[in-house]
Design a protein around this nucleic acid. Structure first.
Length: 473
RNA sequence: GGCGGCAUAGCCAAGUGGUAAGGCGACGGAUUGCAAAUCCGUUAUCCCCGGUUCAAGUCCGGGUGCCGCCUCCA
């Protein structure tokens, strides 16, 4: 079975075939850095990371680029529309550049904590103004855009395919318009490539005027072109990006280059919280710190966010967070068990026993991931392996094979504790002291030591073959 | 009003028309110095109403509910 993905453009699952064999050029819509990202944002970024990791598992080289939008978007389309970065800057009494720098650093720190692999580049909108202007000039020259005063608009009527991605029809958009139409646009659905406003703080002087700044969509067209070329294999984003953002990107990029922009459009579903929407007013836009305050680490959050299918709504609750943590603990335990079987400390007598179970587990995992990154379908492969290990159906050679597989699977999941941890000598001594106390039937002392270890996060299990320890999640 | 997605056990969540994966939790039993872990067992008329079919969670029609977009929120 080969890798298939759901393409938002065709609304169907298609086999994934890169333009150039062996290489995938992928552009991920990144954050607007005016506010620290929250669990909802992480879901979208973890989806992109999982996709990249799966492509790498399949042996493809992934050229991944994620943009950092550090030029403020207007909060609305009216003339006095305020931009998010500038609004936040005023709130914090900083200038917008300081805000974007601060939030960008925070964003990278969060990604690192979540175990997200680094993209090839994280281009910033503010550093690609010339590239944007090049496209704008090109669109003007080709008659796809027009300048009015200090503003430049894309002429949507010049691009008949506009609306294909979102399924929106221009006529219907007009009917539903709720924003006062700017009088300088030829048509209400035209969107800005470049705007001018003397009151704007982040601005650049061009032939259109001294106080200009880019429209929202142009940055992605410019930066993807610069870092990945005119044609992309995959373009991702949250489902909210489909319209207008991606629709406009397609119009600009394809009108400019005359080539198809991205082959596959992939969008992740919004995260729900407590069965409803996540919003600042409800106070449920949790950050990594909020999650930590509830006693969960980033690894557990990563697992909670990737274990559902990226295209299905995922309901985030503290209970589901706890479930995920417990489930993950068992995956960690799987590795520990396999290691013991591989060392011959337990398991089936025949080293080769259960090799076919490992093969089946691998197939379950790969079939699931190949099916449009269906992590929920893939995970039972690992769980089945744990059951096999517990039931003593694996021999040492099979366990070794299984360990290898789990290690590889975790290159994709990025959540399992696969490396063997050695305990500090002081802890080892405590375990030995407890064993001595138990032998002497001094259970009061042995239980005291067990509690002491538990407080240090070490759980002891007395198996028929002796005591084993594991780290409490 | 227009476009799109979703609805499966207490909770999370798979499911390719052929008789409901997996996880978390709960309950009963075994095991244990007590626990933990583990083992055995129990835990779903698949949102509602019609229809197609030998057969529907899966297809079709109609409801209901939730989510997203409709000019700058992943």
């Amino acid at each position: 079975m080969s890798f298939s993905v759901f393409n938002s453009m065709t609304r169907s699952v298609e086999p994934f075939v890169p333009l150039e064999p062996g290489v995938v050029r992928m552009y991920n819509c990144g954050p607007t850095v005016y506010n620290r990202p929250h669990v909802g944002n992480y879901r979208a970024f973890l989806f992109a990371d999982t996709l990249r990791r799966w492509l790498e598992y399949l042996g493809l080289r992934v050229e991944q680029v994620m943009n950092i939008t550090d030029v403020g978007h207007l909060t609305d389309d009216a003339d006095e529309g305020e931009d998010k970065l500038e609004k936040q800057a005023r709130r914090e009494k900083l200038d917008p550049w300081q805000i974007s720098r601060k939030v960008t650093e925070q964003f990278f720190a969060d990604l690192a904590a979540l175990g997200v692999r680094q993209a090839k580049a994280y281009p910033k909108a503010s550093e690609h103004i010339p590239e944007m202007l090049e496209i704008i000039e090109g669109l003007l020259a080709k008659g796809h855009a027009y300048a009015v005063g200090g503003n430049v608009y894309f002429d949507v009527k010049s691009f008949p395919r506009y609306g294909r991605l979102s399924g929106n029809r221009v006529e219907e958009l007009e009917a539903g318009a709720r924003i006062a139409v700017r009088e300088d646009k030829r048509n209400p659905e035209d969107f800005a490539l470049w705007k001018s406003d003397p009151a704007h703080l982040m601005k650049w002087a061009t032939r259109f005027g001294p106080d200009g700044f880019p429209g929202w969509h142009i940055e992605c067209s410019a930066m993807s072109r610069k870092h990945l070329g005119e044609r992309l294999d995959i373009h991702t984003g949250g489902e909210d990006n489909i319209f207008p953002h991606h629709e406009c990107e397609i119009a600009q990029s394809e009108s400019f280059s005359g080539k198809p922009f991205a082959t596959y459009w992939m969008h992740s579903k919004f995260l729900q919280v407590d069965g409803g929407k996540m919003s600042k007013s409800l106070g449920n836009t949790y950050t990594l710190d909020d999650v930590a305050a509830k006693g969960f680490n980033a690894r557990q959050l990563r697992f909670a966010l990737i274990r559902g299918h990226y295209r299905a709504p995922l309901n985030f609750t503290w209970e589901s967070m706890k479930d995920a943590a417990s489930s993950l603990e068992n995956l960690d335990d799987l590795v520990v068990r396999l290691r013991r079987v591989a060392k011959g400390q337990e398991g089936a007598g025949q080293p080769q026993a259960g090799l076919e179970l490992v093969q089946a587990a691998r197939k379950t995992f790969e079939d699931g991931m190949n099916d449009d990154l269906n992590v929920s379908r893939a995970l039972p492969g690992l769980m089945a392996l744990r059951a096999a290990a517990l039931e003593g159906r694996l021999g040492s050679a099979a366990a070794l094979d299984a360990l290898e597989f789990v290690r590889r699977a975790n290159e994709v999941l990025g959540v399992i504790q696969v490396d063997e941890e050695l305990l500090p000598a002081a802890i080892e001594a405590l375990i030995a002291a407890r064993q001595a106390a138990r032998k002497a039937k001094d259970f009061k002392e042995s239980d005291r030591i067990r509690d002491e270890l538990l407080a240090k996060g070490i759980v002891l299990e007395d198996t028929p073959k002796g005591v084993v320890w594991r780290r409490k999640a």
